[in-house]
Design a protein around this nucleic acid. Structure first.
Lengths: 101, 101
DNA sequence: GTAACTTGTTACCTTTTAGTAACAATAAAA
DNA sequence: TTTTATTGTTACTAAAAGGTAACAAGTTAC
């Protein structure tokens, strides 16, 4: 594949990944915190997407051996490097969607 | 909805819209040209997505009354304003995906 | 001793999304 | 006169994605 945008979308594209990644740009979050911030995603799907992001090296999963379980998700360096994309989305959304209504 | 990134993704998110929009950043394209540049999308879905993008004011559809039909798609001013987002995706894709292999 | 806490997994079912094939329309080329 | 060209639409089918509910595990609080 020679198109860099297609390549990027292959990793961060889809219905849920961008929002999950964006949530993590404001710092480490537990599973439950992510669920609260993204209320429309089901637990099953959140688990699946986080696993996929971890496999792609964008998200770090840190599990504490406690009961009840505690798991923290954060961005890797590669995940952090996505921030310019989300910054631009933020700028655009403020200008073209939120200020419209 | 108060999150600008969620707002942006509501308009340009999904499996196909980003790539269609990105294709159009390099200028007006006919339906057939888009099909060639995005070979994995079926005609049905391309029609559906273009219609949705048109309804959201990102894409302009210009139909010529000729036989065989000729239809040209281009970005509106609002669609053009997305380019910083795609530029950042281009930068990221080159750096983190394409140069890896 | 029983319930609640948290982060999952799994099985099953529903919904959404997407693919395929047939059809339309008509002027120009073969 | 039959085929080709282009951009769709529609009906039907297949695949992907997502939702729900049950279950697990062990410590702490009731």
């Amino acid at each position: 594949m020679s198109c860099p945008v297609t390549a990027t979308l292959g990793v961060i594209g889809g219905k849920w990944k961008p929002i999950i990644l964006y949530c993590l740009t404001s710092g480490t979050k537990r599973f439950g915190e992510l669920s609260v911030r993204i209320p429309t995603i089901s637990g099953k799907v959140l688990t699946e997407q986080l696993k996929s992001l971890e496999e792609d090296g964008l998200v770090l999963r840190k599990q504490y051996k406690e009961i009840p379980p505690r798991v923290e998700y954060s961005l890797t360096e590669m995940g952090e490097s996505l921030s310019p994309i989300f910054n631009q989305m933020e700028v655009w959304g403020n200008k073209h969607v939120l200020l419209k209504s």
